[in-house]
Simulated scan of single mutants.
Amino acid sequence: MRCKISIECIFDNIYKIEVPLPQNPLKSINSYVIKGERSLIIDTGMNRIECEQTLKYALAKLDIDLEKTDIFITHMHADHSGLIGKLSTPQSIVYFTKEDAPYILGTNWEKFWLEEANYAKKFGFPIDSLSNAIKKHPGYKYAFRGNLLSKISYVEDQQVLNYGNLELKCIKTPGHTKGIVCLYEANKKLFFSSDHVLEDITPNISAAYENKNPLKEYLESLDKVYNFDVDMVLPGHRRIFYNLQKRIDELKKHHEERLNEVLNLIDTKTPNDAYKVASLMHWDIKYKNWEDFPIAQKWFAHSEALAHLLYLVDIKKAKIVIQNDRNYFLKT
């Protein structure tokens, strides 16, 4: 099968492979390859044939021997971790954080999605749409399933990995997920930002049962990397960029505006749930009406609205009221 691939040499022995994500608003993921005596792949794409064929074809073009290659997974989402079972070998090391490990490895898979569904239902997601939302969720459809034959290595904050001529420092930046980790190469001033800092789109910050105040964590993680000396930012999606601080300032302003928008969608007397708030928010998406949103996009929107509502509760600008086992929000 012929594969349309994009391979770009971005630095000495560092390559960016654009892996397509068909029928997905993200369009593609950037998988990075550090080529050396022992090579490293940073993120993989979803567990679907289009991603697998593209990435394997590109790796072959780069003459990458998978038996002499390790894999670094920046976080749990299927577009970053789904192909670990198709790329790793018994000689490989697969790196990720302990926080995201259960979701990357699919431990207690059905229990995980049941808890996600119950949490979403508690905050207003329609009960009759839950099953369909989960079945069409890309994290459910295209995640890794099976047993890894390779060695697993849990990375810690500030741990250094050496590949090629790079010293890659692991920087935990919780927010987008509990266990997301970026890689910083101080000597070359390179920052592999994963989905923590993106240039053309804003990272999705979603509340879930395992992450009760992700926006607070995310903003703190932006501050954590703000003063890094960086010449080039290598994100998980879309284009490479060069001004880390400017983009962080833009992201913080975006969330400040988002918080104000959400605060204006609740009042002091009539409780609203997160699903209702999400339906009233502005979304940069091609669908004009909330009713036209695909169910998976409604799930993401609901989770992001909830993240902002919970942050407002944390800073005492909103409060939760419980009615019939459902959580609603009031402005304080």
Rank of each mutant, 00 (worst) to 15 (best):
S303F: 03
E167R: 14
D100R: 10
P214S: 11
N324C: 00
I152N: 03
K136R: 09
L166K: 07
T74Q: 15
L62M: 07
A307F: 05
L222Y: 11
P203K: 08
M76R: 15
F300H: 02
V19S: 01
S28L: 07
M232L: 14
G124N: 05
K276F: 06
E8L: 05
W283E: 07
E52Y: 13
Y142N: 11
F293H: 04
L148Q: 12
D223I: 05
L149D: 11
Y287P: 00
K178H: 07
T107S: 14
H137N: 14
P90S: 02
Q91I: 00
Y287W: 14
K216Y: 11
D267K: 03
N30R: 06
H80E: 04
I71K: 09
L265Q: 09
N30G: 10
V262M: 03
K141H: 01
S39N: 11
Y119G: 09
I29W: 00
A120I: 10
D249N: 11
F144N: 09
Y184W: 07
G85K: 06
A301N: 09
I248E: 04
P25C: 06
L83A: 06
Y57S: 15
I201D: 08
L263Q: 10
H255Q: 07
K178N: 11
Y184H: 07
L149I: 08
P174D: 02
D12E: 15
E167Y: 11
E37T: 15
Y32N: 02
Y242F: 15
D223H: 08
D292N: 12
T177H: 05
T202W: 10
Y275D: 02
G106N: 12
L149N: 08
R38P: 00
R145Q: 13
S28R: 01
P203C: 08
L62I: 05
I201M: 15
H137L: 07
T268Q: 08
T97F: 03
D43E: 15
N162L: 01
V181C: 15
E116S: 10
D284Q: 12
N118W: 12
H176M: 13
N204F: 10
K253C: 14
N327Q: 05
Q91N: 13
R258M: 13
E185I: 03
F191A: 13
A120E: 09
Q91Y: 13
V230N: 10
Y57W: 08
E18T: 13
I180F: 07
Y154V: 00
H196T: 15
E115C: 08
D200Y: 01
F329E: 00
D284S: 15
W113I: 01
Q53A: 10
Q23Y: 10
